[in-house]
């Protein structure tokens, strides 16, 4: 919730370019959870080791693109005995529906997880109608 974990979301009027640079071509697709609450869609993307500075979130009306790079874990004068962690960066495209309000998007990076909250447009949110009890007497 603190400000320091906030990630800036870049809004674009023109469609977000999905073309990737040569370096980004072999970036891996990070695992993500997507859930829907009454007022928003929430994306939770596992991006361990990316660091807040390397993460970019760009969106237009139809797609959201998430990128991030990982610092190579290789240290100088160190030999790798076990190497399971992939050091290529992260890249993933999420297609967006019409019901998302592009103006209120919230992104934060905490514990290696990028959480993006996409609020729904006011008109598609469910409305609660309060019920008045009727006691029978006028």
């Amino acid at each position: 919730m603190t400000r320091k974990n906030e990630v800036t979301v870049v809004q674009q009027e023109n469609p977000t370019s999905l073309a990737r640079t040569e370096q980004e071509r072999d970036y891996m697709r990070p695992a993500a959870d997507v859930y829907e609450s009454l007022e928003a869609y929430v994306l939770m993307i596992d991006m361990p080791g990316a660091g807040k500075e390397s993460i970019s979130v760009t969106m237009d009306r139809s797609a959201l693109v998430v990128k991030g790079s990982v610092e190579p874990l290789h240290e100088e004068k160190a030999s790798l005995l076990v190497g399971e962690i992939r050091t290529t960066g992260y890249y993933r495209v999420f297609n967006l529906g019409d019901d998302i309000d592009g103006n209120t998007v919230d992104a934060r990076y905490e514990l290696g997880v990028l959480t993006v909250k996409l609020f729904k447009k006011e008109e598609v949110r469910p409305r609660e109608i309060s019920i008045n009890s009727y006691s029978g007497k006028e």
Partner: peptide, 13 residues
Amino acid sequence: VVSTRTPAVDIAE
């Protein structure tokens, strides 16, 4: 998509 219950490790000397 990379996600398993066993977390990946690197070991360097």
